[in-house]
Amino acid sequence: MLSSALKRVPPMRDPSDPPAIEMAGMNKWYGNFHVLKNINLTVHRGEKLVICGPSGSGKSTMIRCINRLEEHQQGQIVVEGVELSNDLKQIDVIRSDIGMVFQHFNLFPHLTILENLTLAPIWVRRMRRGQAEQTAMHYLERVKIPDQAHTYPGQLSGGQQQRVAIARALCMSPKIILFDEPTSALDPEMVKEVLDTMVALAEDGMTMLCVTHEMGFARQVADRVVFMDQGEIVEMNTPSEFFSHPRHQRSKLFLAQILN
């Protein structure tokens, strides 16, 4: 389905360069329910991670902890050298550097596509309207829907809405983009257009964490695949190793279920 001609070059790394994201001994509970158990994960700049696992395994919760849409109770999360704490100002700064694309797009239905894209640059980055609109049009061209700039989200197809959501995240020139099951709510014929947009983004060297069941995408783009089950990271490996030689029983079972 996807072109596999893309050559994957491991990102060049300067050892003194701080990692983009570092989670150490991170735990989270919902009441008595232990959702995330001792998560240790380091993501370097320019790295692309695909996170998979059965539903309820804590994948979404984990990436939502990275921009503090969910609070963790124990351990450390350091994003671009800044530790996540209760400091609201700091959280807003970190959030503005992390783009997020949601399963259900979460576009603002009362604003036009262009206004959806310029809202945060104007109100958070204090960009001038003209400049924000120029940037927005640039990214709308990249996701191939510049002609829809003055329509409303409700007038677009699911695939188009998700591409707008990606453009909205890009308008803030984020250092990291989190994808939370970006294709799960789409009709099958629209999955490809969104995945193609994500592949193009990966080729540009964006740091990406992607919760998805699109194993073709994982094979093509991911540097590492993270497999989670019951709140734990069970296995973490390159896609070729993970798909050909899964080491854990739970990974094998999961792969057998989704690949058939």
Partner: peptide
């Protein structure tokens, strides 16, 4: 989701 989207863009 509208709150999530707003927060993820860094809006207070």
């Amino acid at each position: 989701g509208q709150w999530d989207a707003g927060h993820s863009l860094g809006l207070p």
